Amino acid sequence: MENSKKNQQYIMKSYFFLFLAIISEITGTTFLKKSEGFTKFYPGAISVIGILFAFYFLSIAIKTMPVGTAYAIWSGVGIVFITIIGILVYKQIPDTAAIIGMSLIVAGVIIINLFSKAAGH
């Protein structure tokens, strides 16, 4: 029982660091657009810092989580949230094919988390 509890703590810690990686990546990518090709210093600096933190937190998450699973969740959730930011901030409306593709990505992330033993359950 004790071993199971410890394993659960490792899983929760991995998902926490994965969450931080996702937030950092979303921040870095959002400010990458605002940096206008790194011609604006502060948005460019925030972008670089965000991406550095994203990789740092991802590297912590994959210590105890399969790299493929972590990367699938990281990139899938990031794609969806960056698209939402693109819609709300930059008025970039995705077409039907993009929406279908992102729906499939979300479905894949859900399937991995609910059913895959590779997700660390």
Rank of each mutant, 00 (worst) to 15 (best):
108 G>P: 04
69 T>M: 13
112 I>P: 09
76 G>S: 09
103 S>D: 11
95 D>K: 10
14 S>G: 09
73 I>K: 05
74 W>N: 04
14 S>W: 01
31 F>Q: 02
38 F>K: 00
103 S>W: 09
90 Y>G: 02
15 Y>V: 05
14 S>F: 00
119 A>L: 03
119 A>P: 01
21 A>C: 08
110 I>D: 07
4 S>E: 13
70 A>S: 12
64 T>D: 14
113 N>E: 07
75 S>L: 13
12 M>G: 01
115 F>Q: 12
46 I>L: 10
9 Q>V: 07
61 A>T: 11
108 G>C: 04
45 A>V: 15
36 E>W: 08
99 I>N: 03
9 Q>R: 08
37 G>R: 11
66 P>F: 14
121 H>T: 03
12 M>L: 14
118 A>K: 15
65 M>K: 09
5 K>R: 10
19 F>A: 09
52 L>R: 00
72 A>S: 15
15 Y>C: 04
69 T>Y: 13
112 I>G: 05
119 A>W: 06
112 I>A: 03
110 I>V: 15
94 P>R: 04
43 P>M: 10
40 K>F: 15
29 T>S: 12
117 K>F: 06
41 F>K: 07
85 I>G: 01
117 K>C: 09
112 I>D: 00
79 I>Y: 03
76 G>Y: 04
55 F>L: 12
62 I>A: 02
117 K>G: 11
32 L>W: 06
25 E>I: 09
23 I>G: 01
63 K>T: 15
51 I>A: 02
117 K>L: 13
72 A>G: 15
36 E>M: 14
94 P>K: 10
61 A>K: 06
79 I>E: 01
87 I>Y: 12
82 I>H: 03
48 V>M: 04
